[in-house]
Design a protein around this nucleic acid. Structure first.
Lengths: 128, 128
DNA sequence: TCCGGCATTGACCTACACGTAAGCGTAAGA
DNA sequence: TCTTACGCTTACGTGTAGGTCAATGCCGGA
């Protein structure tokens, strides 16, 4: 119960530096508690960090991630804001679908490269 | 036959700046011909630019892209190099699979966000 | 009490991927 | 001929996402 994570535990788990997690705090992405000046990360912080890193992997900028977190923390109540958000969601979805297609195409290409590598290796193997 | 593209044609088609294409040339990703100092892009250059931009969209750096292009231009002939390349290909493949999963998870989340937006909009619509 | 080790802060530094401005050449159309 | 548009180069500027370094705080163990 009430398990806390230290900053280095999390850096080890996620393969990032302490600098990175502190930077994320500076940027307002996470708000770990403090005992004195020492940061104490809860499970919720840990999950949030996971999501941040996932966002980064797929190319979201820090400010985009901050926006998304904001939406989760307090979703807009006004209709205009909601519609704006939905338009942004649509945009992002298109963007991600494009990226997924790019990735699939590239995976196919990698298959080709690998195959031609194998072919050449076989040729070399035969000729030596 | 022998249709050439001007730099601005391509920038319009791909939604990038002239600066970007010149930068790609500086970085050795493309080598358009010249008439005098003016760059003349062929269909092959155009296709290459497409691939470069795709690479960028999925998070390859310029130097990674340069490496890939290099491999296409002259594939390594030596067995050790081939095996090294195959290891890199494997790494990239894992990376891309992870990214694809990230994207799919995020797409699912976007669906959730959209739905709760719709729900709230309906609530608001009812209450006004 | 002293020490080693983890944490923190702030200041500065860095790589990448361009943007932007200045200044000039050139070619086509009014 | 004048203007407009496009293109070129050189050079400096910029935002992002951290890295690095130095000085310092704090705690538990010998």
């Amino acid at each position: 119960m009430h398990k806390f994570y230290t900053i280095t535990e999390l850096t080890r788990e996620f393969g990032v530096s302490t600098r990175t997690l502190r930077y994320y705090e500076d940027e307002g992405l996470i708000q770990p508690e403090r005992r004195g000046r020492t940061r104490l990360f809860r499970a919720a912080d840990r999950r949030l960090i996971q999501e941040i890193l996932r966002g980064r992997r797929i190319g979201f900028s820090i400010s985009e991630i901050r926006e998304i977190i904001q939406v989760y923390k307090d979703p807009p109540g006004e209709a205009g804001q909601l519609r704006l958000l939905m338009r942004k969601v649509e945009e992002k979805r298109d963007d991600l679908r494009q990226k997924r297609k790019d990735i699939e195409d590239t995976l196919a290409e990698l298959d080709n490269i690998e195959e031609s590598c194998l072919t050449r290796l076989a040729e070399i193997g035969v000729n030596t």
